[in-house]
Computed example of a mutant assay.
Amino acid sequence: MKIRQSILIATLALASAAAGVSAFASNDGGNDARIIPNAKISLSQAVTAAEQHVGGTASKAEVEQHAGKAVYDVEVVKGAQVFDVKISPDQGTVIASTQDRNDHDDHDQQD
């Protein structure tokens, strides 16, 4: 389990770094990942906070808009349940946590 968790954290760290690079290169004004270089906590710290809040394991993490502000959105799996946890990039605190019954925001993505 620790190896899987280490791989997840390493993957998220790489994704965070890549998002920061692409955000730096982007000037379209619509890229939520632009907050990463200015955030007080890293994406991997947000993942840890979300996992601790739910008591589960993160399966996905990204930056998105919530109530007009960019936040870290972490999908956490606990047993058969999936939770969407919003984390403040400035405070590292949980802004919102809801059980995701249909995971409808991923229906059009192919893995």
Rank of each mutant, 00 (worst) to 15 (best):
M1C: 01
R4S: 11
Q5H: 12
L8P: 05
L8V: 09
A10Y: 09
A10Q: 08
T11H: 06
T11R: 00
L12F: 13
A13P: 04
A13V: 09
L14A: 13
L14W: 01
A15C: 09
A17V: 13
A18Y: 14
A19H: 09
A19F: 11
G20S: 15
G20L: 10
V21D: 07
S22L: 14
S22R: 14
A23C: 03
A23Y: 02
A23G: 15
A23T: 04
F24Y: 13
A25R: 12
A25F: 11
N27L: 14
N27G: 15
G29A: 13
N31G: 05
N31Q: 04
A33R: 05
A33Q: 07
A33N: 12
A33E: 08
R34Q: 13
R34H: 06
I35S: 04
I35T: 09
I35P: 03
I36G: 02
A39S: 14
A39W: 08
K40H: 13
K40S: 15
I41Y: 09
L43V: 04
S44P: 04
Q45C: 06
Q45V: 03
A46F: 06
V47F: 05
V47M: 10
A49V: 15
A49P: 05
A50F: 06
A50M: 03
A50V: 07
E51G: 06
E51F: 09
E51C: 00
E51S: 03
Q52H: 06
Q52Y: 07
H53R: 00
H53F: 01
V54N: 04
G55D: 08
G55M: 05
G56S: 03
T57C: 01
T57V: 15
T57L: 06
A58G: 03
S59D: 05
S59V: 15
K60E: 15
K60S: 10
K60H: 08
A61H: 09
E62Y: 05
E62K: 12
V63K: 04
V63C: 07
H66Y: 15
H66C: 04
A67L: 10
A67V: 10
G68M: 10
A70H: 12
V71Q: 14
Y72Q: 04
D73P: 03
V74K: 01
E75T: 13
E75P: 07
V76D: 04
V76C: 06
V77L: 08
V77Q: 15
V77T: 06
K78F: 02
G79P: 05
G79L: 07
A80D: 11
A80Y: 00
A80Q: 12
A80I: 11
Q81S: 13
Q81P: 03
V82D: 00
V82Q: 00
V82C: 00
D84N: 12
V85G: 07
K86L: 14
K86T: 10
I87T: 04
S88H: 02
D90A: 11
D90F: 01
Q91L: 15
Q91V: 10
Q91Y: 03
T93K: 12
V94Y: 02
V94E: 00
I95C: 05
A96E: 13
A96Y: 01
T98D: 10
Q99T: 07
Q99G: 01
D100F: 01
R101F: 06
N102P: 00
N102H: 11
N102V: 10
D103I: 11
D103W: 02
D105H: 09
H107T: 14
Q109S: 14
Q109V: 14
Q110L: 11
Q110H: 12
Q110M: 12
D111K: 12
D111E: 09
